[in-house]
Design a protein around this nucleic acid. Structure first.
Lengths: 138, 138
DNA sequence: ACTGGTTGCTTCGTTTTTAGAAGCGACCGG
DNA sequence: CCGGTCGCTTCTAAAAACGAAGCAACCAGT
């Protein structure tokens, strides 16, 4: 399980939550490993920026530069890489408008959109347990 | 926003989902940034291994070595670091049993436990959109 | 007594990932 | 023409993760 490599959707050894590690759950008796599906979810969500990018796209389609501005702190190169990965994984869709000026927009795919309720649950949890950016009283 | 540093719960500049970037949401008109609470959640969940560790601990308390085995693919040093961070953040609790042999166990805190439903939602989503470890048809 | 194993980490060097700046062609407005 | 934006790409530097070795404490077997 090496998430360092681009989470190639083809490999079972992807992400911090690679299926590889999940498959090591032995299956019998001692079943204290992470749920495989959850591990799979964290193939993407456990990778820096993906969660925030997807969260940002819940507001609607955005272009590269717009995302760059709205996902504060992300670099061009990482954003480009993440968008490519998320697209390959089928979580977002990239649409090109060809006529001058050419423009590109990214939006959540059906799969990405299906993730929104879970993301909302995370948001609700965080709002409760991280009351303020500087308030650490979980 | 530098998640590279240990997500010190005191700082507003933590994680890929630092409050710093969320606060840059400008607040008026163009509100397409990620929800601040969600960004905060990804301070931890967007960091390699945290989601899987927390997911693993939903099965109940575990020792270090047990976690090491059950979170397949994680290294000792990263596990140690992550446990420390998650404890500092109040998501897990470390309990020491002193009498020979000394043993240490980690379990979800109240805040960590409160995260379980959201994690479950993620798991359900992933099971639907990633049907199999090697099956990439979201 | 010694050996080998487990536990719960720590340390250190290596590899991978992320960050950050600069760059490019296309397009637009002044 | 210039300067700006867009949508990236490229390259170097910094940070994170990896992987192996190490340590003290403890236990069981010979």
């Amino acid at each position: 399980m090496n998430p360092v490599s681009t989470p190639t959707p083809t490999s079972a050894t992807v992400g911090p939550t690679s299926a590889g590690h999940s498959t090591a759950s032995t299956g019998e008796g001692n079943s204290k490993t992470c749920d495989e599906a959850l591990a799979q979810a964290f193939t993407f969500l456990g990778k820096r920026w993906n969660g925030v990018i997807l969260g940002t796209l819940t507001n609607g389609a955005s272009g590269f530069a717009e995302l760059r501005r709205n996902v504060t702190g992300i670099s061009d190169s990482v954003l480009s890489e993440r968008l490519s990965e998320l697209q390959t994984a089928g979580l977002i869709v990239r649409a090109v408008e060809p006529g001058p000026p050419i423009s590109v927009s990214y939006q959540l795919s059906d799969a990405g959109t299906a993730l929104v309720p879970a993301m909302h649950a995370l948001s609700v949890w965080a709002a409760k347990h991280f009351p303020g950016p500087g308030d650490r009283t979980p």
